[in-house]
């Protein structure tokens, strides 16, 4: 059913999505790799590649880490920008689907593809402004981030492991997962305190996921951190060696 859930159906439902801290992300791509790893072997796998070990490997990934530069000179910085599905409230990828394969869950807001119904027309990928959907090159059905729905509700896993694979693996702790509809949740608190924002809202998608902006470091703060001077006062042993050799 590719009509979006009505406000009445969504009432009381969760809004699960990711919150990514662009201040702490180090651009290591571990989230992307673990996403690929879990989703190629998990409930929705394989997530295939073409020419995987050849000269021009190409395949479907559900998480991609872009790198941007912002500002000039001292204010300039590199920002790593991981991008995956934002599980939009007004998901345009869902309503365009002609077969009923794409849908948004009323109970937690997760946007999914029922791949047995997907005819591989690709219209949903055109409709998504963010490029969050990729065609599986071998299965010829559309793939997207499932928020690791086969982890987060999986009672076979320890409770601490019931989070998306990308969040679990992030070595910098830059990825958070939670319910944006609950004002008391950790992600809602972080969004409030750090000015979390959604991207390309002018597309009318009402994305659920948010980014935390890179922290602004005032010039004075940067200047106050004096670079340490190289020291050339040797310890007692080295001073003795120095005297000996200089003599």
């Amino acid at each position: 059913m590719t009509s979006l859930p009505t406000p009445a159906e969504r009432a009381g439902g969760k809004s699960l999505a990711l919150l990514i801290d662009l201040d702490t992300c180090v651009g290591c791509h571990a989230c992307a790799v673990n996403c690929k790893e879990w989703n190629t072997g998990g409930r929705f796998g394989p997530l295939s590649d073409r020419d995987a070990y050849g000269a021009r490997p190409e395949g479907a990934w559900l998480n991609r880490v872009h790198a941007f530069e912002t500002g000039e000179e001292e204010a300039g910085r590199t920002v790593y920008f991981p991008k995956n599905c934002y599980h939009c409230e007004q998901a345009p990828c869902v309503t365009v689907c002609p077969t009923g394969a794409s849908y948004k869950r009323a109970e937690d807001g997760i946007v999914l593809v029922e791949e047995e119904l997907c005819m591989g027309c690709g219209l949903c990928a055109w409709a998504c402004p963010y490029g969050a959907r990729e065609m599986d090159p071998l299965a010829q059905v559309m793939r997207k981030c499932t928020l690791c729905i086969d982890r987060i509700y999986n009672e076979e896993l320890e409770e601490v492991d019931r989070v998306p694979a990308c969040v679990l693996t992030c070595p910098a702790g830059a990825r958070h997962f939670g319910d944006f509809a609950d004002p008391a949740s950790e992600v809602s608190r972080l969004v409030r305190e750090r000015g979390g924002y959604a991207v390309m809202e002018e597309m009318g998608t009402a994305p659920t996921a948010r980014y935390l902006p890179p922290r602004v470091r005032p010039r004075e703060t940067l200047a106050a951190v004096e670079a340490p001077e190289p020291t050339d006062t040797p310890g007692r042993f080295l001073a003795w060696v120095d005297r000996l050799l200089s003599g």
Binding site: M1, T95, V96, C97, G100, C118, M119, G120, L123, Q140
Partner: peptide
Amino acid sequence: LGHPERAWRAFSQWRSSWL
């Protein structure tokens, strides 16, 4: 289409989809 054999399913979502 990646799966032309499933094209018949495209008749089902006329409520939301222009395709």
